[in-house]
């Protein structure tokens, strides 16, 4: 186990080195933030002063060294736009993103897994076939379109849910979250559903495929011969064997959603990290972009680590060594 942890940690470091170089090079090459900072008809001296202030006069490798040194202390520089430390801005936005993502993932797991189990166990049933048809729509419809349709139907036509924004924020366990207020929940529903659809359909189809495979296995029939009721065989015996690929995809989807909620957050004006990233890219706010990408890289490695641990809990045959 210790060896595994060391292995994982070194893997994380390697990933971070590679990502940091990529991030640094690309953000340095693309766009010039100097002209965003100086006034429109700035003199040559003013531009030069801005360049020195940003440290852009030094050669690239030196700048990378400074970047890494600062990054290790959690300092990615001040946002060119907000004039605050980049990491602090990201961590302020993080709860807003994580809350819609958690609601979305819970929603997709709680809906997709039971439906997947059902349609995998009774594939010829009319209901199962309808589920599969609808799930194709879930995979293929783009989220910006779904988001707009949801706003149109539930907010504009029916008027039962708010159009956009985060709503009231309450404090729960010391964290500011919309999950603590009714208004927050009302605001969370539409963006979460929009986010959930894609992963819901994917998890559903994967669960179904796994169930169909496992239902043919002997141990399912043996469990039935032991007198275990069908429902218990489905959820107790077959589902647990199906979960390995489902957990993998679930982890990837979770990371993907946290990292790239940009479209949904933009549609619903949700003040999360995704919207922050889009704004930062538009204004060439390098510190935010690089801090964000490194943050996402760390998170992906962490989620995959958790997924690996889950494997060993689900399937005893998997050994981390």
């Amino acid at each position: 186990m210790l060896r595994y942890l060391v292995f994982r940690a070194s893997q994380l470091i390697l990933v971070l080195i590679v990502v940091s170089i990529l991030v640094f090079v690309f953000t340095s090459v693309m766009g010039n933030p100097v002209y965003l900072m100086v006034r429109e008809n700035a003199t040559e001296e003013e531009v030069q002063a801005a360049i020195e202030y940003l440290g852009l006069d030094k050669p690239l490798p030196v700048r990378y060294g400074i970047f890494v040194k600062n990054a290790l202390r959690g300092d990615f520089g001040k946002s060119y736009v907000y004039h605050q430390p980049a990491l602090r801005i990201i961590s302020e936005r993080f709860p807003a993103t994580i809350e819609i993502v958690i609601v979305a993932m819970l929603l997709s797991a709680l809906v997709a897994i039971p439906l997947g189990v059902y349609s995998g166990a009774y594939p010829k049933n009319f209901f199962s076939k309808s589920i599969m048809t609808i799930s194709i729509a879930g995979i293929s419809l783009p989220s910006f379109w779904v988001g707009m349709v949801l706003i149109f139907v539930f907010s504009l036509k029916l008027g039962i849910l708010p159009v956009s924004g985060r709503g009231d924020v309450g404090v729960f366990l010391g964290i500011k979250t919309s999950l603590a207020t009714v208004s927050g929940w009302r605001h969370i529903i539409l963006p979460s559903v929009t986010l959930a659809l894609g992963s819901l359909a994917t998890i559903l189809r994967l669960t179904r495929a796994g169930m169909q495979e496992n239902m043919r296995q002997d141990y399912v029939k043996f469990a039935r011969a032991k007198g275990v009721p069908r429902k218990k065989v489905l959820f107790g015996h077959a589902l647990k064997n199906t979960l390995i690929p489902v957990v993998t995809i679930f982890g990837l989807q979770l990371g993907g959603l946290i990292a790239f909620t940009t479209i949904t957050e933009t549609i619903f004006s949700w003040p999360g990290m995704g919207k922050l990233l889009i704004d930062a890219i538009n204004s060439a706010d390098r510190p935010i972009v690089s801090a964000y990408i490194l943050f996402v890289a760390v998170m992906f490695v962490f989620i995959n680590f958790v997924v690996d641990i889950l494997y060993t809990i689900i399937d005893p045959r998997i050994d981390l060594k």
Binding site: D218, R224, K226, H237, K240
Partner: peptide, 20 residues
């Protein structure tokens, strides 16, 4: 099933559930 009449299957490699 299991109480009055029980069964033994052909392949013991597959008739036991691997995750329990």
């Amino acid at each position: 099933r299991g109480k009055e009449i029980s069964m033994v299957f052909q392949d013991p490699m597959t008739s036991l559930n691997p995750v329990y």
